[in-house]
Amino acid sequence: MSPEVARLGHVALETPDLDASLEFFRDAAGLEITERTGDTVYLRAVDEWDHHSMSLTEAEEPGIDHVGWQTAEPEHVGEYAEQFETQGLDVTWVDDDAEPGQGEAIRFDVPEGHRFELYGEMEKPDPPAERDSKLKNRVYDPSGDNPIAPNRIDHLQIWDPDGLGCAEWLQENLGFQVQEFWDDADGERWGTFLSACEVKIDLAVVQSTTETDDPAVHHVAYDVTSANDLFAAHDVMNELGFPTDGIGQHAISRGEFCYTRDPVSGHRIEFNTGSYLTLDPHWEPVAWQEGDLKDRQWIGAIESTERVRY
């Protein structure tokens, strides 16, 4: 049986001012701190069991250290390492608990330079006693939640100077499934929307504006329960003075969204209501072409394409 990627696990972000960025990610966006080690803080959403779905590390410049994916079985990490080394990729092993809470892992660069990590296991720590839910199937007591308090990490959007080539590599080497794609009027691929499991998107791969652009991340998305939560998020950001970059509904995925951004690091969160499941093992990708709709957004607009480089 071939090794498999099970899901998007976490993103490791870098910021020039950790404490200032926490005012956004923790105090405004509602993520919970599980651990702080030196210049790195580990966070998760209120309905996540794993140790973290995001880390923030203080660095000289904003950046993305890596994107973490959990494999279906722990032994698949080594199987992927053998596969990539045979292909000539530079694979770096990460020791057990070198990244707190996480088992042994590998890191490698996906063409054209996105840094990915594969790991098989992650601890599931209890929340602080004062935040522990009485329900055994819930992590945090919601009565103390931030007004937004997203549920879980949902997906990531990356920009690549060879978006189609990157998406095809992910399909061939990590087994990702194409859910939807959008081609420009000239037939060139603008975006490919991929999944490692049955959710509608784990990873969106978008073609960079020019072929000389560095690989970058546009946003990391967190799931919320309803469209009302999107308006609550927009309201909180307005009250606290954090920038928002649009609210509405995508045509691709049908996901309802609100984009907001940490002004210190430039890292952007999309609050997203999620969308349909694709349980069909013989799913046929939804094909969009420029001209099918006036815009790729069904309602509203995205007001900024600024992104953070690796």
Rank of each mutant, 00 (worst) to 15 (best):
W49N: 03
T40H: 02
G63E: 13
D109V: 10
W69L: 05
D132R: 14
R26G: 01
G63F: 15
A251R: 12
R138Y: 09
R44G: 00
A105W: 01
L174R: 04
A287G: 11
G175P: 01
R309L: 12
T305K: 09
G300M: 08
Q70S: 04
E35M: 00
E172P: 03
E303R: 10
M122A: 00
Q177N: 12
V224C: 03
Y119C: 06
W182Y: 14
P142W: 00
V77L: 02
V5T: 02
G88L: 08
C197I: 10
E23T: 08
D17L: 08
S304M: 03
P161D: 08
H52S: 02
I302M: 09
M237P: 10
R268D: 01
F84I: 03
T57P: 06
D162M: 02
D262C: 07
D95I: 01
T305Q: 09
L170N: 00
R26D: 01
D95S: 00
L13W: 00
L164V: 09
T278S: 09
R26C: 07
E239C: 12
D141P: 00
G103N: 06
H51W: 02
A6H: 04
Q171G: 06
H250A: 14
F193S: 13
K294V: 12
P142S: 03
G246W: 15
V110P: 07
H219N: 03
D202N: 15
K294H: 14
T273V: 10
V11H: 03
L43T: 02
N272H: 11
V5C: 05
E32H: 13
A301M: 10
S208I: 06
G175K: 04
I148S: 05
D183R: 13
T92A: 05
L277I: 09
T37H: 14
H155K: 13
N228G: 06
L230M: 08
K136Y: 11
A98F: 01
W69R: 06
E61Q: 15
P3N: 00
G88M: 08
Q177H: 12
H282V: 12
